[in-house]
């Protein structure tokens, strides 16, 4: 059996292309995922991270109100939606870099003035590796998760590190001849 790195479909051993998404499988055939950390990152879908419920706000919400929501709900970002579509994201970083000491005087301005309009999103069945890659390349710390075009969750860099940390106890240092990390979950 060869697991497709892209969609996770379990293909018949020896197939060159994934039967579902047609990604080439040749490079992934052979020994893979020698550790539990690798397995979690490469094979597990984002739904395993249990994305938390997002804080959704409309573009015209006063930014002061969004700040209070972020504090009250212990979350680092709000997703700005209009007509169920994601139009932006507003994070703690925006608070620091765009509002900063002027937060009080700007509090009645709409959040759309300060949000980041370009938002990277993923879906529940995408691999965790995709999220890792997007976070590394784009420097993002939060990625909204969509289903049928609507935001249903949010994952953070912290949530991914927690998931990886959950595998650390099960790692075996190299050279001890134990293949515990290879077992399927």
């Amino acid at each position: 059996m060869t697991v497709c790195p892209d969609c996770g479909h379990e293909n018949i051993e020896g197939e060159e292309f994934c039967a579902v998404c047609e990604q080439p499988l040749v490079e992934v055939a052979g020994p893979q995922c020698s550790t539990e950390v690798e397995r979690r990152l490469l094979l597990h879908p984002i739904r395993r991270l249990n994305p938390r419920e997002p804080v959704l706000v409309a573009p015209n919400t006063p930014v002061g109100e969004v700040l209070r929501k972020l504090v009250d709900q212990h979350i680092g970002c709000a997703v700005v939606v209009s007509d169920h579509k994601v139009v932006g994201i507003f994070t703690e970083r925006d608070v620091l870099l765009k509002l900063n000491v002027r937060a009080a005087e700007l509090r009645d301005h709409p959040v759309s003035e300060f949000m980041t309009a370009k938002v990277e999103t993923l879906e529940l069945d995408d691999r965790i590796a995709f999220a890792l890659h997007k976070m590394d390349v784009g420097g993002y710390r939060h990625i909204p998760i969509l289903r049928d075009g609507r935001v249903i969750g949010i994952i953070s860099v912290r949530r991914i590190l927690n998931y990886i940390a959950g595998a650390l106890g099960r790692e075996t240092p190299a050279g001890q001849g134990n293949d515990a990390g290879n077992k399927a979950p």
């Binding site: 790195p5 892209d6 579902v20 690798e38 691999r127 590796a129």
Partner: peptide, 17 residues
Amino acid sequence: FPSAVYNLPPVAKPAMH
């Protein structure tokens, strides 16, 4: 994971379901 993560296809979605 140079081979695994850097070689991910540009779009996460499969070509067809």
